[in-house]
Nucleic acid binder design. Structure first.
Length: 596
RNA sequence: GGAGACGUAGCUCAAUUGGUUAGAGUCCCGGACUGUCGAUCCGGUGGUUGCGGGUUCGAUUCCCGUCGUCUUCGCCA
């Protein structure tokens, strides 16, 4: 037997047990007559001790040659540590293993970095030597947490009669949505598969096929630029149900989240999860995924702006724009003029804000600041009242069209809350956002585009405006928000061909175009499609939030860099001419082609 | 596609307004030590300052380009 126990398992009660351990050398300490080796595996660490007086003297010579990350097997006896030498910082600190035999299973070269070192190496090093990085306890904690979460998900849905079905990875490219990853076909030269952005259409077809409760932990691909919380290859918990309404999905998923909180983090979550409409979220927080762990809500003062002579305010209001602001409570003394200029420049750079109007509240509750002199006393008082200004508050205002003020104030709100530590980072704050708009007007394409996807069902009460006032139509859509991140989202689908065709028409798609792209779905809708809907959670992001880390790469075993490359394997890479020839693919780099 | 930050020893970092031989910790090598646990102590090896160009008497430092990593805007139905 290679090992009779793991490195993290031994306790005082194992005193006297003869054990065989196997693992990596975490540290080796030479005290001449006594030699300590801390042995590590994914279950923990245990101290082993070698004495110069041990029976097998060759083992004592051998142990002196051990270096970090050598893989060894140690046979010995568990001993309670002598009095005063117990290490309370180690779970196995009550005991040590007195070695009798040492087998070197494999020597390690000198490692580029030591997994147990206190300083974390640069991310570049970690990604290049990911196998070493994954030896770090923090990475093991996250990957095990991820496993627990997917296990809870599978158990939960299994108990509710869901069926896990795998859908294809090689699929058909569709023009809507994100850029596709393409895979050339050898058998049909000149034709391409697309990797799925999500299993959306397949899961709807499964509903039509009668699998009324479907789940999948599905890999999805989107060839778009990356972010701290976005990878080109990511995982969704994908759900679809038949004969249900939005309330059923929300209840089901709320219950899952409650279970995850309980089983994974040991924390209670009281249901129901609060709800907010999209309009309310945009009005109060400037974003459709508001972070509700802190206040600093957006307040509108456009009506004051309309009546004032202060040009910045007045012009905005007269142009049909909005003047909105936030109150940074009790922070005026923490922001110098220079700091505020810094915030203004940041807003200009990040969101295209023309400027910020700011006031500080003095000890008498009066607004002061460079813009105060342009405003009448009564206007200042009205503004102060609307923002519930108190002495030493800092008020920041953004002027412009509604969406600009949303972007600017949401950005400021998040940045300042983080900077001023206005929330408990360990809080898990869930919220459902409902009643999203169906369509967005695209200036670029000069047409309406679907905000979710073109199979989303409109709210029944808004159906009548579908042609007359598309901007007014709201969708049967719902997002779960956790700590200001969109954790997941879903919709009730259109299940009749007539409504589907009306939506396609509004999106500027002819019947022929729709048929060409989604013909199989339109066909299927005519063969007995049940009412259905579903949702998908971003698993990597959910793990990130449950693990309390701020980076999705730490939640994926082998992630990609911001340029979508894998520093360990070197993917993507050029391929042999022969491979390209088989696929009838020609590489045509631009003259300044940056490709290697 | 745009913006910003960073790139110095194997690793983590320092280096004053641009100024002598680019330092420290760790790792590694050698030595000491019978109770350490981020061991300690003594000694030693280790550098094309990412790469290319420019300014300068002199560049880790300033400028331009380029590559890489990160953050972010656009983008992500």
């Amino acid at each position: 037997m290679f090992r009779t126990t793991t490195c993290g398992a031994l306790r005082g009660s194992d005193n006297g047990r003869k054990v065989t351990l196997a693992g990596w050398v975490d540290s080796a300490r030479d005290h001449s007559g006594v030699f300590f080796v801390n042995l590590r595996d994914r279950y923990g660490k245990v101290q082993t001790v070698f004495y110069s007086t041990m029976a097998d003297s060759s083992a004592f010579e051998l142990v002196k040659t051990l270096r970090n990350e050598d893989v060894v097997q140690i046979i010995g006896t568990v001993r309670l540590r002598p009095e005063g030498l117990v290490n309370p910082n180690m779970p196995t600190g009550e005991i040590e293993v007195e070695a009798e035999k040492l087998v070197v299973l494999n020597r390690s070269e000198v490692v580029p970095f030591i997994p147990s070192a206190p300083e974390v190496p640069s991310e570049e090093m970690r990604l290049k030597y990911r196998f070493l990085d994954l030896r770090r306890p923090e990475m093991q904690r996250i990957l095990v947490l991820r496993h627990k979460m997917t296990k809870v998900m599978r158990d939960f849905f299994d108990e509710q009669d869901f069926v896990e079905v795998e859908t294809p990875v090689l699929g058909k490219s569709t023009p809507e949505g994100a850029r596709d990853y393409l895979v050339p076909s050898r058998v049909s030269q000149g034709s391409f598969y697309a990797l799925p952005q999500s299993p959306q259409l397949y899961k709807q077809l499964l509903m039509i096929a009668g699998y009324d409760r479907y789940m999948q932990i599905a890999r999805c691909f989107r060839d778009e630029d990356l972010r701290a919380d976005r990878q080109p290859e990511f995982t969704q918990l994908d759900i679809e149900m038949s004969f249900i309404e939005m309330e059923d999905i929300i209840a089901m998923m709320s219950s899952l989240v409650q279970r995850l909180m309980k089983d994974v983090l040991g924390r209670e979550l009281t249901l129901p999860i609060p709800r907010m409409t999209y309009d309310e979220a945009m009005e109060r927080f400037g974003h459709d995924a508001p972070d509700l762990r802190f206040g600093m809500e957006l307040k509108d003062v456009t009506d004051v702006a309309k009546e004032t002579e202060f040009k910045v305010f007045r012009a905005t209001a007269d142009d049909g724009g909005r003047v909105r602001g936030i109150n940074v409570k009790n922070a005026a003394d923490q922001f110098s003029r220079k700091d505020i200029d810094g915030l203004t420049a940041w807003c200009a750079d990040q969101f295209g804000a023309k400027g910020l109007v700011w006031f500080k509240v003095d000890a008498d509750g009066k607004l002061t600041g460079s813009s105060a002199k342009f405003l009448a006393e009564t206007d200042l008082e009205r503004i102060a009242a609307k923002l519930e200004a108190e002495p030493n508050d800092l008020l920041l205002f953004s002027c412009g069209d509604f969406l600009l003020t949303c972007r600017v104030l949401n950005g400021l709100r998040r940045r300042l809350a983080s900077q001023l530590k206005l929330y408990d980072p360990s809080e898990m704050n869930f919220c459902w956002i409902v009643k999203f708009p169906m369509f967005d007007w695209s200036e670029e394409e000069n047409r309406w585009v679907a905000m979710h996807h073109p199979f989303t069902a409109p709210l029944v009460e808004d159906l009548e405006f579908l042609e007359s006032d598309p901007g007014r139509v709201r969708a049967q859509a719902y997002d779960l928000v956790l700590n200001g991140f969109e954790a997941g989202g879903g919709t009730i689908r259109i299940h009749d061909a007539e409504t589907q065709n009306r939506v396609f028409a509004l999106l500027g798609m002819t019947r022929e175009e729709a048929k060409g792209q989604f013909g199989f779905l339109l066909d299927a809708l005519q063969f007995g499609a049940p009412p259905h809907g579903g949702i998908a959670f971003g698993l990597d992001r959910l793990v990130m939030l449950f693990a309390g880390v701020d980076n999705i790469r730490d939640c994926i075993a082998f992630p990609k860099t911001a340029k979508a490359s894998d520093l360990m394997t070197g993917a993507p890479s050029p391929v042999a001419e022969k491979q390209l020839a088989e696929l009838a693919v020609k590489v045509d780099l631009p003259p300044n082609g940056k490709n290697a």
